[in-house]
């Protein structure tokens, strides 16, 4: 199978026109969301969030940060312990059914009926979401094309690869052309090729006006897809903004230094860099084979640091100055959590 041309089926793909009195409202509006499981685990501890319509929004965080719990509250699978949550303008507690009618949800675990064919899976979803009888066949064909499963439409899903199952799962979440789609770690466990393909579909759906709320633990995914992101850690949002905003918050550029293996070479290098006057405000961390220094001043004073390393008997085997990535953002933020005096990174 070859990747789909960018223009294939675009006109007929699930999308929405948002007209009418509520057109300017947010797709998701959350204040003070808290969720405590019955065993006492506080999975979400005070989340405030607004996602405007049409946005590709990313929820970035490590395992156990509270991403899935939050998305399940939005999808009406969990009831919030406290806080106000409105999805598509509806209250999660009193208008759950209206939310279910107006969202698509793709769970973290692939959710399809393996005994049914691809076509039957999509058809079941059409019926479950009340797609009018006369439109079902057309919708099934359209979605099979969108996710490139038309040629295996009559094969049972249990025969599919992981990537094909995910694509089928994604298709079933779109049958009713929801204006808002939740994707919970949609590419976890997929190979890079399958991941890129899914990204393509998500971009296409978003281009047609669908709001997308995606959770991910892949920084690259958030960087590639999202207009805006929130970083969640231990049930709290610790940073929010566009990928470039967040990178800017890291402050300056990143100097990566590779060191020759030696007894605690990286930790000695970290000590030297921290004592370096020009990098008083820098964020310094150990990497796999050396250290990385993030500061406004790495271009002016980087060479001085390398000289200092040589004087201390450390052998530099390589160095590189680059713009920060979301990995640096994440490191800066999580670093701040662990090390309270490193205040520079997250304001």
């Amino acid at each position: 199978m070859s990747p789909p041309g960018p223009e294939s089926n675009v006109q007929s793909v699930p999308g929405t026109e948002r007209t009418g009195p509520l057109a300017t409202e947010s797709a998701i509006d959350v204040s003070g969301l808290e969720l405590v499981y019955s065993d006492g685990t506080a999975a979400v501890q005070g989340v405030d969030l607004t996602v405007p319509e049409g946005e590709f929004f990313g929820f970035l965080g490590p395992n156990g940060a509270g991403k899935t719990t939050t998305i399940k509250v939005f999808a009406t699978l969990l009831s919030p312990t406290s806080g106000e949550v409105r999805v598509n303008g509806f209250d999660v507690r009193s208008e759950a059914r209206k939310i279910r009618e107006s969202i698509g949800y793709m769970a973290q675990e692939t959710s399809i009926d393996p005994e049914l064919t691809a076509e039957e899976n999509i058809r079941f979803a059409c019926e479950a979401y009340g797609v009018p009888r006369g439109q079902r066949s057309e919708r099934v064909t359209e979605l099979l094309d969108l996710v490139d499963l038309a040629d295996v439409a009559d094969k049972r899903a249990e025969e599919f690869s992981g990537g094909m199952k995910k694509r089928l799962d994604a298709a079933t979440a779109l049958v009713h052309r929801p204006p808002l789609v939740f994707l919970d770690e949609p590419t976890t466990g997929l190979d890079p090729k399958a991941r890129n393909r899914l990204w393509d579909y998500f971009r296409r759906i978003n281009d047609l006006g669908t709001t997308i709320f995606l959770t991910t633990q892949y920084l690259e995914e958030a960087d590639q897809l999202c207009d805006r992101l929130a970083v969640i850690l231990d049930g709290r949002i610790v940073a929010e903004g566009s990928p470039s905003d967040l990178k800017r918050e890291v402050g300056g550029e990143v100097l990566d230094v590779e060191l020759e293996d030696g007894p605690d070479a990286p930790s000695r290098a970290v000590t030297i860099a921290r004592e370096f006057d020009a990098f008083a405000d820098a964020s310094v961390s150990e990497t796999e084979d050396g250290i990385s220094v993030t500061a406004e001043t790495v271009r002016q004073h980087g060479t001085d640091l390398l000289v200092a390393f040589r004087d201390a008997g450390l052998t530099v085997t390589g160095f590189n100055i680059r713009a920060p990535t979301l990995d640096d953002v994440f490191l800066a933020i999580t670093g701040e959590e662990l090390d309270a005096d490193d205040t520079e990174a997250t304001r």
Binding site: G20, K98, E101, Q135
Partner: peptide, 21 residues
């Protein structure tokens, strides 16, 4: 289940591709 059985009155947010359950 909360909200499981409430009515399905028309709403401006209802996706256009639905006829209801």
């Amino acid at each position: 289940t909360p909200g499981a059985d409430e009515g399905t009155t028309a709403s401006s947010r209802r996706p256009e591709g639905r006829s209801g359950n």
